[in-house]
Amino acid sequence: MSAPAAAPLLTTPLNALHLELGARMVPFAGYSMPVQYPAGLMAEHLHTRAQAGLFDVSHMGQLRLIGPDAAAAFETLMPVDVIDLPVGKQRYGLLLNEAGGIIDDLMFLRVGPDEIFVIVNGACKVGDIAHIQAQIGQRCQVVPLPDQALLALQGPQAAAVLARLAPGAAQLVFMTGARLTIAGADCLVTRSGYTGEDGFEISVPAAQAEALARTLLAQPEVQPIGLGARNSLRLEAGLCLYGNDLDVTTTPVEAGLNWAMQKVRRSGGARAGGFIGADVVLAQLDNPASLTRQRVALIAQERVPVREPAVLENLDGQHIGHVTSGLLSPTLNQPIALAYVQPDYAALGTELFAIVRGKPVPMVVVPTPFVPTRYYRG
């Protein structure tokens, strides 16, 4: 019997524009996506750091949770404070399984008293929406938004560009959002992103996405940016990639995401526990010594690119962990990586070795971000 044919790749509403711009397209999360344009990954990365880059992230999943019980219901799925999030504010969240493992990481915006807008990862969106529907669909409406595209405008000039087209954008600060009209398109805009730079994510009706993208690209500061530079930018910012640095076997505590779990949801908090996986996560928070691995950031002492899934060894040649994301940082011109190691090797300044083509490359545990972030906090 012949192998079943692979499902045809989906395309985003900007597919024709990517081809017109000369993008090199690759399969990603079931979609045909631009990995880079003719300028190349390095130029795109540095342009985003210096001016403004436009990313098509329409493969991501978008949904609305609607109803007076939506916030309390959503809070049962995550170790995150949803109830107290004010209207217009955005927060990072983590969907967990019963073992405390991360089903997905996501962003959510309190649009109104009875409405939450959620963005989940593209590769996880079908499973995420089914999970949310199954768990809380009786308590609130779970409304997928397949007819919305998602654009990200990122970089130090992003605010000037967007304010030119939608003056209200200047009022937003990091991790806030609002409905804005941009070049005639009705958009839901958040001041956030995945690059470490100031910037915006723009949810726009699919039918209006290409016109909006062309308007943004017509601004002198803006260039199109592919998935390749999106990955190098997020790694320099020390941000996790789901499927690499986070997965269903990894807990938020192992991943070093304690900051994403507000005090109100932790032991002793007013709404402690009550979320899926709480027994495991709260026990790890209360007893960090119980961890068997921790996520760390590493910088290489030689200019040898270290990529996932390189094995990590201690000074005695014993296996102590592995790299989950790694590349040569375009900004620093040094190899950087995220990795999981045994807790004894997680302290800042610890020296260890990555094994690359059979040879040890010396690396040191460092704080993140690798490149300072420039979020606009007002």
Results as ranks from 00 to 15, higher is better:
Leu65Gly: 01
Glu75Ser: 04
Glu210Trp: 03
Ala207Asn: 12
Gly196His: 00
Lys125Ser: 02
Gly226Gln: 05
Val35Glu: 14
Leu217Tyr: 05
Pro224Leu: 12
Val143Ala: 09
Thr331Asp: 15
Thr331Pro: 06
Asp198Pro: 01
Ala163Pro: 05
Pro224Val: 10
Thr181Val: 13
Cys240Trp: 05
Ile103Ser: 00
Pro27Asp: 09
Pro362Tyr: 12
Tyr31Val: 02
Val264Asp: 05
Gly112His: 03
Phe117Thr: 01
Pro38Lys: 06
Ala346Lys: 02
Ala152Trp: 07
Ala270His: 13
Ala16Gly: 13
Leu19Trp: 11
Leu145Ile: 10
Thr324Lys: 08
Cys240Ile: 13
Asn287Cys: 07
Leu151Met: 12
Ala160Glu: 13
Leu246Glu: 02
Asn287Glu: 14
Ile299Arg: 15
Glu201Asn: 08
Asp105Ile: 10
Tyr375Asn: 08
Arg49Phe: 03
Gly177Tyr: 04
Ala3Pro: 07
Asn333Thr: 09
Thr176Tyr: 01
Met25Cys: 12
Leu312Asn: 05
Leu21Gly: 04
Pro335Asp: 11
Ala237Ser: 06
Gly155Val: 08
Ala7Thr: 15
Gly378Tyr: 11
Val264Ala: 13
Gly273His: 12
Ala3Gln: 14
Val264Pro: 01
Val173Arg: 14
Pro309Leu: 15
Met78Gly: 00
Leu216Lys: 09
Ser329Pro: 02
His322Ala: 14
Asn244Thr: 03
Ile83Arg: 14
Glu236Thr: 10
Asn15Pro: 02
Ala16Cys: 09
Ser2Lys: 14
Val253Trp: 02
Leu291Phe: 07
Val204Cys: 09
Gly378Phe: 10
Phe74Glu: 06
Asp247Glu: 03
Arg191Ile: 02
Glu254Ser: 04
Gly274Tyr: 09
Val281Trp: 07
Pro156Cys: 09
Pro362Asp: 10
Arg91Met: 10
Asn15Ala: 15
Asn287His: 15
Val120Ala: 13
Phe353Val: 03
Gly238Cys: 07
Ala43Gln: 12
Leu282His: 05
Ile182Asn: 07
Ala158Asp: 05
Val296Glu: 00
Asn97Gly: 11
Val304Gln: 13
Asp114Gly: 02
Leu257His: 10
Ala211Lys: 14
Thr250Asn: 08
Val361Ala: 10
Gly273Ser: 10
Arg179Lys: 12
Leu153Pro: 04
Ile83Asp: 12
Arg357Val: 12
Arg377Leu: 13
Pro369Trp: 08
Tyr31Thr: 02
Leu106His: 15
Ala50Trp: 02
Leu241Glu: 13
Gly61Asp: 04
Pro335Thr: 14
Gly269Pro: 03
Ala255Phe: 00
Asp114Trp: 08
Arg64Ser: 03
Glu221Asn: 00
Ala229Lys: 01
Pro335Cys: 11
Ser267Lys: 14
Ala270Cys: 11
Pro68Ile: 00
Glu254His: 02
Arg164His: 15
Trp259Gly: 05
Glu75Ala: 06
Gln133Trp: 00
Val57Cys: 11
Val356Pro: 05
Glu20Lys: 15
Arg49Asn: 04
Ala337Gln: 11
Asp147Ala: 12
Tyr194Glu: 07
Pro220Gly: 05
Gly122Ser: 08
Ala149Arg: 08
Gly53His: 00
